[in-house]
């Protein structure tokens, strides 16, 4: 069965959820909701690459799942589950691993910047009025600031053109087409519905193909290229700002109680922060939260039962380990493996 790219990706994502999470959980991960649960789902179930990368409207998400269901590839109960037929469609290399959600929208932000900067400079050079291709305030403000620092526009444009052309030559024709036909300047980029006919696909899949192509293009650029330089300040950290603050204070030697008191955080919020730190930080004082024996037991249960469901793990444990400790342990298993 030939699946569209968007459906293939959804199927891969559902498969990784191991029949343990609901469609709502998946929806939030795809939206990139920075809540403790969604961050944890993305981390535990290897869905970091899709985090925030398929921000469908609710109706679209439902429609796509219904499609997969009707094709007999998934089942929707209290949890989302891939069927045997569905499983047969999923094999490495997985498409979703090319989306780059672990960089928290880095490639998309960089695209917005580059595309608006090119359009603005080309149109200023030629003195033609234009409709800004990007509408979000942050990008527009960034471009406004950048323009001031580009003394020789003509030269700059020639440089960017060369960089793009050389990088795109390393890509397939289809990938290069997707990128050059989305750019605007003297010619205006094409909408996904316009490209859809010529590239024989659907708009949602094309958007995902575009992201993958753009990421590939970025990989073919030199570290010192103008394009990559323009993205050097984009925030790629996975930790929420609030958790980062807690982590900073911890590293400065403050105790958990002090931090909670100072920042007026509830116990549960502090725990969420600690789980985030355990998930994303290369160092973590695991011993402070869980003993060696307990930590080993959690790992054994996870491997034996092949699960990340807190409830199921808790039920299998013999020693007294609370949910917070289980979460911390799970968060660190990823680091142990690598």
């Amino acid at each position: 069965m030939e699946l569209t790219i968007v459906n293939q990706m959804l199927l891969e994502a559902v498969t990784r959820l191991r029949d343990e999470r609901t469609d709502r959980s998946l929806y939030h991960v795809l939206q990139g909701k920075r809540s403790a649960t969604s961050l944890q789902d993305a981390h535990f179930y290897e869905l970091e690459p899709v985090f925030g990368m398929l921000p469908f409207k609710r109706e679209t998400f439902d429609r796509l799942l219904t499609e997969l269901e009707r094709q007999g590839l998934i089942e929707r109960d209290t949890t989302l589950r891939v069927t045997e037929i569905g499983k047969a469609q999923v094999a490495a290399p997985f498409l979703i691993d090319d989306l780059g959600g672990e960089l928290r929208g880095f490639s998309i932000t960089l695209w917005k910047r580059i595309s608006l900067l090119i359009q603005t400079l080309v149109c200023l050079e030629q003195r033609i009025t234009f409709v800004p291709i990007q509408q979000d305030v942050a990008t527009k403000e960034w471009v406004r600031q950048q323009i001031k620092h580009i003394p020789n526009r003509k030269q700059w444009l020639e440089g960017i053109h060369r960089e793009l052309r050389d990088a795109l030559r390393q890509l397939s024709d289809r990938e290069a087409t997707l990128i050059s036909y989305r750019l605007s300047g003297l010619k205006t980029g094409l909408s996904y519905p316009q490209l859809q006919e010529q590239l024989d696909s659907d708009t949602l899949s094309l958007r995902l193909e575009f992201i993958m192509a753009w990421r590939k293009c970025l990989r073919h650029l030199n570290e010192t290229s103008i394009i990559l330089q323009l993205g050097s300040d984009i925030d790629q950290s996975k930790m929420t700002q609030s958790a980062q603050k807690t982590w900073e204070m911890l590293k400065r030697g403050q105790t958990l109680d002090e931090i909670a008191h100072r920042r007026r955080l509830k116990k549960s919020t502090m725990e969420d922060h600690l789980v985030e730190i355990a998930m994303y930080s290369d160092v973590f004082p695991l011993g402070q939260f869980i003993g060696e024996a307990e930590w080993n037991e959690v790992k054994q249960v996870v491997n034996r039962e092949h699960t990340y469901s807190l409830k199921r793990i808790k039920a299998e444990l013999t020693s007294e380990i609370d949910y917070f400790q289980i979460r911390i342990a799970l968060a660190r298993t990823r680091w142990e493996e690598t």
Binding site: I118, V122, Q126, L157, E158, I160, H161, L164, R165, L168, D173, A176, T177, I179, S180, Y181, L183, S184, G185, L186, K187, G189, Q194, Q198
Partner: peptide
């Protein structure tokens, strides 16, 4: 109807040649 897609020419046109 729309012409044949040619990404390298298109890239030129976006940057340089007048529309």
């Amino acid at each position: 109807s729309g012409g044949v897609l040619d990404w390298e020419r298109r890239l030129e046109e976006v940057f340089f040649s007048s529309a």
